[in-house]
Amino acid sequence: MNEKIHVKTKINDNDVEFLCEARQSLLEVLRDVLDMTGTKEGCNDGNCGACTVILDGQIVDSCLVLAVEVSGKTITTIEGIAGVDKLHPIQQAFLEQAALQCGICTPGFIVASKALLDREPNVSEGRIRHWLAGNLCRCTGYDKIVRAVMAAQENTK
């Protein structure tokens, strides 16, 4: 179990190589091996969405992906959402709409929301709520989060 495996992957448009144990999740490797701590652990069993990343175009809970599985794949994490000198419209909307309080779930929500708006530029409140049902927030009651995603949608048009 302790033997390290060499994995080559692409994270936020950068080629990345790392060594990991077979039992390590993508989340563990992001946080503990690559020191990319923007992706958060809330439950480690796929029920809170705090560790959401985009893997080959689909959002996944990185706690439920083994690190060895990402060999040859493309990953986007919260660290890769903003441009060099500009926030993504979703990030800007979260700030303007006060859509975060403690902020621990925020990376997961932003990554998931980005994936949604990339796929579906015209989404209803109901669709946003459904899409984000895999992301738990305990501070906001979701009201301002849903409004932020709707506002970001307007701003990206």
């Binding site: 958060k40 919260i78 926030l87 902020g103």
Partner: peptide, 23 residues
């Protein structure tokens, strides 16, 4: 008034450090 919170940028970009983020 409703200014943008000061710690917001770090939190929407994943830079903010929480308790488990210290290595």
């Amino acid at each position: 008034t409703r200014p943008i919170r000061h710690d917001g940028l770090e939190k929407v970009t994943g830079q903010a450090r929480y308790s488990a983020d210290i290595n």
